[in-house]
Amino acid sequence: MNCSINVEHIPDASEIAEARADMCVVDWAKRAIDTAHHENCGKSVMCRDGITQLAAILGDIVTGKGQPDDLALLKELAEVIATTGGCELAQKAAKDLLESLRRYPEEWDLHCRRKRCTNLICKAYFGVYCAPDKCQGCTACMKVCPVGAISGGPGMICVVDTDKCVRCGKCFEVCPHEARAKFGAVKPKLPEAPVPVGSFSGGAAGGARRSRRRNLG
């Protein structure tokens, strides 16, 4: 059997030839694998069970459940899939994963062992906050948040409940004052509850950036 159905949905490895600040190479590889998982027809063990397995491991890695041996395991399994004929969909996705692993070992290590994502793309590894110095209390973000994670009111600096927030990014899209931001390992100093605009002086924008610098240490 030799089947190339749906292979066009799998991204080309050239997309990660250079590191870019607006993407995560782990997330990119995961999406390639997830796409193959979604498109597979079930007829080849490499795709049906192999890709399913890779997707499960990757799912763990980007949600803080990665295990020390996972990177070696991923590589071993992906190599078998990539070099087994029959299903081009699975082969191409596995090759994408191998390429990412080969080019960016530190970033994978960061995800797997230290539970960090350099560019704050992987949702488990960043939080969303509202920069108190930029917020104008317009409440636009509150209206779009699908889970009601934002508290505040007109003229109040809003506050995001990190436990509730699902990192959907909708608030980023609507904030007219570019007050929405992400943080990584270290949460910046923020008001605990909404306070009137202008009344908070503890924090400054860039908390996220500082913590990132520390992460890359």
């Binding site: 063990v45 069970d49 192999g50 399913t52 397995q53 399994l77 078998v80 087994t84």
Partner: peptide, 14 residues
Amino acid sequence: THRRAVAMEFMLAG
């Protein structure tokens, strides 16, 4: 041997 082992592991995982 390795390839067969991996294919079997894939099948047995579910």
